[in-house]
């Protein structure tokens, strides 16, 4: 779900960085200082969970979880994802400094779009909430794949085949992602509904 260093052209990198910076600025502006600890902790939790390999047929995929990040955080998903990507670059060399902007956009823009489209349904009836959560998880990964494809195609039109391969590879992941997002939202609705948008947070003793 992220592009490596050295692949994309200068203009694509600059455009990605500018859009990601704008999104991060909005996200930081909307981030209440009272929620910094919560956002940081959730960013860490998602980072840890995305390292897990989930079996899928003979292979395994690792979860991206950007749809769920969007649902729980809204616009602050941008800074949370920047932080996750910085940690990933430093610890595992997935992505790096030049691709930080593009990779942030690839994950965070679908997250925020998913939040805008689907967060209002999470407190509705169970079926509607789970369907919305599935759609959000599914679309967030698929949109991310499309953005990867666009970044590749804008770099070099002959990367089109690579772009198609990348988007196709995202399809099964998107289905798994939708299922896990829906099941996780179902869990949170029962265990801690205050975590989901549209409800006052639960009191911690």
């Amino acid at each position: 779900m992220h592009l490596s260093e050295g692949v994309l052209s200068g203009p694509v990198l600059v455009a990605g960085a500018a859009l990601a910076a704008a999104g991060t600025a909005v996200g930081l502006k909307r981030l209440d200082p009272d929620r910094i600890a919560r956002t940081a902790m959730l960013a860490g939790a998602f980072f840890v969970a995305s390292l897990v390999h989930v079996p899928l047929g003979p292979a395994s995929v690792h979860l991206v979880l950007n749809g769920l990040v969007g649902l729980l955080l809204g616009w602050p998903a941008f800074p949370a994802i920047v932080v996750g990507l910085v940690l990933q670059a430093v610890f595992f060399q997935f992505g790096g400094l030049t691709t930080l902007g593009v990779n942030t956009l690839i994950m965070a823009l679908p997250a925020v779009i998913g939040y805008g489209l689907f967060s209002r349904f999470l407190q509705a009836g169970r079926a509607a909430a789970l369907a919305a959560a599935f759609a959000c998880g599914f679309l967030a990964v698929l949109l991310g794949g499309v953005l990867v494809g666009l970044a590749l195609t804008f770099t070099e039109e002959h990367f089109f085949n690579v772009a198609v391969a990348v988007i196709l590879a995202h399809l099964p992941v998107a289905v798994v992602e939708g299922v896990v997002t829906a099941l996780c939202v179902g869990f949170l609705r029962r265990v801690q509904p205050g975590l989901l948008p549209g409800r006052p947070p639960a009191e911690v003793p």
Partner: peptide, 19 residues
């Protein structure tokens, strides 16, 4: 998938409490 989703959900709940 349900088990993973619930483990993740539990991790999120504990993270927010810790936060």
């Amino acid at each position: 998938y349900r088990t993973f989703a619930w483990l993740l959900g539990m991790l999120l709940v504990r993270s927010v409490d810790r936060a």
